[in-house]
């Protein structure tokens, strides 16, 4: 079975909307399924995901690989993820350029890496191993961040570019994350976009942040901000009308509202080249 093509602007699947989607089958270009919430084999959650995948093109997006960690990979995590992918046939699997585990603990929060040559070597080897385990090329997402390490010697765009080239993986550019990090660390988000190799980028994410005054917080709890729409337009002009996905995880709105946000992204595709 070949996966359905992922085209246009989709939404992240949330449990609140599953029944409605399965009952009404509204036209949605594609759905991103949060793999971490569907990893119990043979569970009712997986039943839902399988049914969704029968009707819509899907991708799998996760937070738990802990690609940047130093402890060995969790074998069971990869086995379960691989088994889920074998059932859903996602067009691709993505996770983040970050770490979520150390010292036997799991943060369940995306923690940033120090941007050094040494980290690049380490993460490249980890992504290669993850790709081997999952038997496919991975799509890696940039995270939003609130701190920079003393030892960081490279910019985030230098780091992510080097990792993608050497690990030979694809990139999921979260335009909101770039904007949030640019504000928090006072860099130019356009420079970030301009230095990412065009052919590496597979997908965009859009989400809403919260302005905390001293910093922007990536809460996925608001509509996409105007400035992020602006940055998105530049991204479209540089990378083309790539598949785009709206993430919404706090104050989750109705399905209609969520789809309206995705529709705005579709309109941006049209206007970006006008």
């Amino acid at each position: 079975m070949t996966p359905n093509p992922i085209l246009g602007c989709g939404i992240g699947l949330r449990f609140q909307h599953i029944d409605q989607i399965l009952a009404d089958k509204p036209p949605i270009p594609w759905l991103e399924i949060l793999s971490d919430n569907y990893l119990t084999p043979g569970s009712v959650q997986q039943d839902y995901a399988i049914e969704i995948a029968q009707h819509y093109p899907v991708t799998l997006h996760g937070v738990g690989m802990s690609l940047g960690a130093t402890e060995p990979f969790n074998d069971e995590y990869f086995q379960r993820l691989k088994a889920l992918a074998d059932q859903l046939h996602p067009a691709w699997i993505s996770d983040h350029l970050c770490w979520t585990s150390a010292h036997g603990w799991v943060s369940h929060d995306l923690l940033p890496l120090p941007y050094t040559e040494e980290t690049i070597k380490h993460v490249v080897q980890r992504i290669r191993e993850a790709q081997d385990r999952l038997e496919r090329r991975l799509v890696i997402e940039n995270v939003s961040s609130y701190l920079q390490y003393q030892e960081s010697a490279l910019t985030e765009w230098e780091f992510i570019t080097a990792v993608a080239e050497e690990a030979d993986c694809k990139l999921l550019l979260d335009v909101n994350n770039i904007y949030v990090s640019a504000f928090n660390h006072d860099f130019d988000p356009c420079r970030y976009l301009d230095s990412i190799p065009i052919e590496r980028v597979q997908q965009f994410h859009l989400a809403g942040y919260e302005d905390k005054g001293t910093h922007l917080l990536d809460t996925h709890g608001h509509p996409v901000s105007d400035s992020v729409w602006g940055l998105y337009k530049l991204a479209l002009q540089r990378f083309g009308a790539l598949p785009t996905l709206i993430e919404w995880d706090n104050n989750i709105p109705s399905l209609e509202e969520l789809l309206a946000e995705a529709h705005k992204a579709t309109e941006a595709h049209i206007h970006a080249f006008a």
Binding site: G12, R14, F15, Q16, D19, L34, D36, N37, V44, Q45, H61, V63, G64, H96, H108, D109, L110, E141, V143, S144, Y146, A207, E210, K212, L217, D218, T219, H220, G221, E247, D249, N250
Partner: peptide, 16 residues
Amino acid sequence: VKAGMNDCAANGHSCA
């Protein structure tokens, strides 16, 4: 119906 079944929080956002 579905009380107790939710996305929990493993979804890549930050929390205030």
